[in-house]
Design a binder for these strands. Structure first.
Lengths: 227, 227
DNA sequence: AAAATATTTAATCATTTGATTAAACAGAAG
DNA sequence: CTTCTGTTTAATCAAATGATTAAATATTTT
């Protein structure tokens, strides 16, 4: 058993599960139970506050199975992290690079889709933004090329409509409008009487507000920056 | 020695340093060296990723001195956290509640002061927003009352100027415009060719853009939300 | 059914980590 | 100088934590 695990490891060091050499068809669920628990615990508490025992308990499995299926906490984490980055950026990329839609339409889509996405996964943005600080190379891996963003259709459309404006300023503002309220939620709840339902209602209203406000921003008179 | 420490602990359990009973006047610097190192390490890595040994090394002191002066990692953390929250919110509160300034002027002040503050302490916002998730009660302690924010002069001025708008939507947008770029910085740097100097330049330009844009937002036509 | 292979478990390891202790050291008080 | 008190150090502790192992159980293959 010891031998077979390591042999396989050297053959496929795919970072993937290393069991199931020939045909065996187990539950399929154990591995998925661990991943599901890992999604929950990692996104909630972040990498370094997460204990492998938390994941094992949440998954209802023996601790050793985590290492059996995923080799290490780090390897399991990377799988979840990549998955979550795809959730987070995957929704953005296609909209930004759509040749068939107007700038206004893109703003509407991003606002609406992003807010819905995060309402359904409230810990997602903070998790991504936090772990991006420790694993910048992982972010880079998901964003294929460093010039995709600046060369996207969206950015071109902004340059066309408002040439004096750094289009990155606009994109950051748009994302901030959608994402920041979630990042700030705990502070907000501690400092006001707002609770979960009111927060959700506010975010639903924001889906309408953000496009209106960003259109207004695009109509402002040029601001010239001194150098 | 053992005895005197504990006696003092029960007399002043102020969470403060417990040495220096009679007169001795040491370096004064050891305690401060630890705090300074703790500021750096905690804000950079967060509570759970921080090792007391990291702090001791950064401070150039023996590990035991950390516990000698501050009892525990947790106690030291709370001191730093409160300090940092005062940095972060202390600049905001007086502006928000200033009876003598206009709404536009408040927006300008917040934009300018906040961006300058965070440029000088780039890890501050993420630290605060992150630890707020684990210690909501600490946030509440610094924000004196839960109704301060919603009753502030700033909020009244927004209600007056744009009665149909939830003033919280506006405040969150303003803060997001200033703070979110810093929260997002690592992602930004991984996904574009932007480096530190360009980021700083962008934030300086933002000090001008944010007030212009937020004034434009205040001039938009009312949006009525269906219920 | 027997053999081979895969999965699961309980026990255990080695390291890390927050914290403590006892002794050495330093400076002020008597 | 000696004593007292506060500071610093090196060694050590106990608990937590990521990981491994060997044995057990289950499943597939022959």
């Amino acid at each position: 058993m010891f031998k077979s695990r390591w042999l396989l490891f050297f053959v496929f060091q795919s970072g993937h599960k290393m069991a199931k050499k020939t045909t065996p068809r187990p539950d399929i669920s154990t591995e998925e139970k661990i991943k599901e628990a890992a999604r929950k615990v990692f996104t909630q508490k972040g990498y370094s506050a997460t204990r492998t025992r938390d994941i094992a308990t949440a998954a209802g499995i023996n601790l050793a199975l985590l290492n059996y299926y995923f080799r290490s906490k780090q390897k399991l984490f990377e799988i979840i992290m990549v998955e979550k980055m795809q959730n987070f950026f995957g929704i953005l990329i296609p909209i930004l690079d759509d040749l068939t839609t107007s700038l206004d339409s893109k703003v509407e889509h991003i606002s609406s889709n992003y807010i819905d996405l995060i309402l359904a996964n409230p810990d997602l943005p903070f998790f991504i933004l936090g772990e991006a600080r420790n694993n910048p190379e992982l972010i880079f891996k998901v964003a294929q090329r460093k010039d995709f963003l600046m060369n996207s259709v969206f950015m071109k459309q902004i340059r066309e409509k408002k040439p004096e404006l750094d289009p990155l300023q606009f994109l950051i503002s748009l994302l901030g409008m959608c994402v920041f309220p979630f990042v700030m939620k705990p502070v907000l709840i501690s400092m006001t009487h707002m609770a979960e339902p009111a927060f959700k209602q506010m975010m639903l209203e924001r889906k309408i507000l953000v496009p209106v406000w960003l259109k207004a921003i695009l109509k402002t008179k040029p601001v010239i920056h001194s150098r």
